[in-house]
Every structure is written in C-alpha cells, then in structure tokens.
Design a protein around this nucleic acid. Structure first.
Lengths: 226, 226
DNA sequence: ACAAAAGTGTTGGCGCTACACCCATGT
DNA sequence: ACATGGGTGTAGCGCCAACACTTTTGT
C-alpha cells in the first residue's frame, strides 16, 4: 500500500460477501442465501454481505455478515477462507464498490427453520450450487463459482478445510459423495478407500454408522487423529 | 456485497500493492521495489502501490502503480494476477487501510538504469526475494511471500504465468533454474528434460542458444506452440 | 419363515503415468 | 563442465474383478 499526500476520498465502498457452504450425507453440498433487507434487490435471495466497518478486520466482517444477514452464528462457522477481491462497474448499480469474498464452511444444521440459531435471526435457505435456477443479483454467481473452485482445488490438500466440510466423523460414502459434488464425476470407490486407509490424518472409528442405509453393506466410518 | 441503508463512510482506504516479479537466466528470480515518494517511510524501498481511484478497476490500479511508482510500463507487464486482500491494524501507521495485492510478471529489462522505460520514470531496483535483508515497510514482506507462494503453486499448471516468466524462447537450463529459485531445490535434469519433451505446449526451437555458455553441452531451446 | 435377489461397500490386482535417483553419452 | 537421453524403483491413480454385508423381494 501507499498513498498520495492527500488521501483521495470517494473511493469505492468495501463490501464483504460470504459464500456459506455446507456438506452433509443426506443433503449434499449446498450454498446458503438470504433475502436482502435493503435496496437494491429488496427481498431477492443473495449472498450475505455487509459493508466493512471502519476498524474491522476483513474476516470479522465476514463473520458479522453471516450473523446479521444469514443468522449463522460464529460457533457454526467451521472454516473461513478468503477467495479474493471482486470489482467491476456492473456489480452494483448504486455506487462503485469492491467486494472481498469469503467462503465459509458452516454446520449444515445452522440454516433453515429449526436450525440452531437464534429465534429472530434472518431466515436463510440452502440451495444446490449447480442449478442456481434463479440467478443471484450483483456478481454473486461469479463469487459462488470462485468459492467452489477454491474448495475444489483444495480438498484433501487443505486438511482443515476438508475436516470442516466432512465433519468430525464421516463415512467413505460421504467422502465419495463430496468428491462427486465438487468435481462432477464419481471417484473410483476402491481408490477412495485406499486413500482413506493410507491417510495418516485418519483413523477408523468403530461406530458402525447409527443411521441405517437403505440396503447394502454399511460403509466404514472415519475420524481425524488429534 | 450489500449494505445498510445509509452507507458508512470512514471505511478503510483501498490500496493496491504490486509485487513486480521477473526471471532471466543470468539474474534469476527477482522482485522489484522503488523508493517511497511520500510519507510515511519516505525514501525507503517498498512495493509500488497506489490508492484506488474512484472509478478504477483493481487491475488498472495495479498497472498504474507499476507505471507511476516503479516506472514499469504496461507493455512490459506480461502477466497480472491478484493475490488477495490484506488487512490488519499494523499494516499502516497513518490510517486503516486494506491492500489488494497483485503479482506482476514483467520483462526483466524494464527495471533499472538503461531499462526500456521513460527517461523520467521513478527508479526501481530488482532484488533477490529470499534474502530481503532490509525489511520492507508495512506488510510488504508478507505480501511478497504470498505472491511467491502464488507463483510456486501455479508454475507449469498456469501456462500463461509460466510463459510470462520464462519468455517466448528459453532453454532447459532456464526452466531448471526457475524451478530451483521457486522451490529451493534443484530438479533432476533428466526428469526436467522429459517433462519439457512431453509437454504438448512446447516445441523445440532450432536456435542453438546464441549466447555461449561457459563450457559444457549447450542446452536445448524451447518455444511455445501457437 | 426362509431363501434368493438386489443394492452397496470393501479389498486386492493390473497397468499406466509421474517422479526421484542413477549412469552412460554427447558437445 | 554441463546437458541429453535412457534406465530403474516407487507412489498414485484409473480400471477391473471378487468378496462381504445389508435390505428387499418372492414363495
């Protein structure tokens, strides 16, 4: 950074937009949106976002956006990663603004009616990322694509991210399903198993997966070594 | 992005900082800095940076920083990639500011006295990135580390980036030297040759490397297809 | 109730590619 | 000296086949 001697004000606004991502065996990979409370696009579903506060850290702004716009408490946020800064004249009709985007891996139960949040929190909904039928306002579709690309290129390389997505205990099927959701193609089950077996960060959990599947041999459950 | 109904001003300033990177056989991998013209840290070497102009795109701000602070013309910029947004209260003693950092691969001859720029451009100097003996102000050391990490993880995966670093024609030794500079360890010359030979984006150039090495078999020269 | 079928996951083998490491050859 | 070209061994992954465990279906 640097500056001319007199700081130029009238700079673009700094916005923080967050892509809440969750994964669970039953529901798959999902992205949360919440209806906008202010103009423009009032009532439309959009990513939770806020304007950066004067002395606020970027990551703190992301957490505030999750809390105030989507009702996702900080305790439900398992992982937070910056995606990048987005600009462009088309991204906001009001005034020029740049957006620093984050991807947030949150607990799957933290969204939707009956979730674990406060009673009066804004209602947010999970949606499947691929067929985002109703296009999102601003450049939020671009941001979601970038966030998913970020996750896709880091799965199994970034262990904290992977752990946040899969949770503390998960089955081989869960891992395969996550990979399928991210890459679009199902991995070979044999290779998936070998990878899980030889991964030094994982140990087999004896728990035989309480929930009964609809037929078939129950998958092995895994846990993370501490 | 989004916002409260009344836009909160007094937001942090938006700065653009650029890490100019170049690679050449003789000089290796280098990063350019320029002496600061304004307070704070007047006269100290730092990354070229500007405050984002009201209606300016982020990438345009990066090019303007290169031009006005380091004398690197847009024609000398071969590649421009965003690294991310940096914040933190310690990064600027004057006022809170965030910085959107870029890595710019520039022509090695575009910096230093006798370079290809204008006559009155600010003087910038190349430096080896590793032993940044004189610590840079702000969080510029962090930004340089992030930029080099960005390059390290994308070399040979991001073809435009690799092409910008190596140039249009290069030798096998150049490729090995670049890899050594990025990873710290020299790759096996046999594997490097195999990788170059089997890379469909490369073709052998007949030019037998005009500059005579100091003894030894001259390396093969390569060019990019199309 | 019992057996067969269908569904799902695990384990192992085979072949290809990539890479670390080595050595002989070319200039 | 220095680079090229080739060889060997290991790790990873795509692909395939056999086996194990569970639920569903048929009689």
């Amino acid at each position: 950074m640097t500056g001319a001697p007199t700081a130029a004000r009238d700079q673009p606004l700094i916005a923080i937009d967050v892509v809440p991502v969750s994964f669970a065996a039953g529901s798959g990979l999902r992205v949360a949106t919440a209806p906008r409370q202010y103009a423009p696009y009032v009532g439309q579903e959009a990513l939770p976002g806020v304007l950066l506060a004067p002395a606020e850290r970027l990551a703190d702004g992301a957490r505030r956006a999750l809390r105030s716009k989507a009702g996702i408490d900080a305790a439900a946020v398992r992982h937070l990663a910056q995606i990048g800064a987005f600009d462009g004249p088309e991204r906001d009709p009001r005034s020029t603004a740049i957006s620093v985007a984050f991807a947030a891996v949150v607990d799957p139960s933290a969204v939707g009616p009956g979730g674990g949040g406060a009673v009066d929190r804004p209602s947010s909904v999970w949606r499947l990322p691929d067929q985002g039928e109703p296009r999102l306002p601003f450049d939020h579709d671009t941001i979601i694509r970038a966030a998913l690309e970020h996750v896709r290129t880091r799965i199994w390389r970034d262990l904290p991210l992977t752990r946040a997505l899969l949770g503390e205990v998960f089955t081989s099927s869960d891992a395969a399903q996550l990979q399928t959701a991210l890459t679009g193609t199902a991995p070979d089950p044999g290779n998936t198993n070998r990878a899980l077996r030889t991964n030094p960060a994982l140990v087999r959990a004896d728990a035989p997966s309480s929930v009964a599947g609809r037929g078939g041999r129950p998958p092995v459950t895994w846990t993370w070594v501490d």
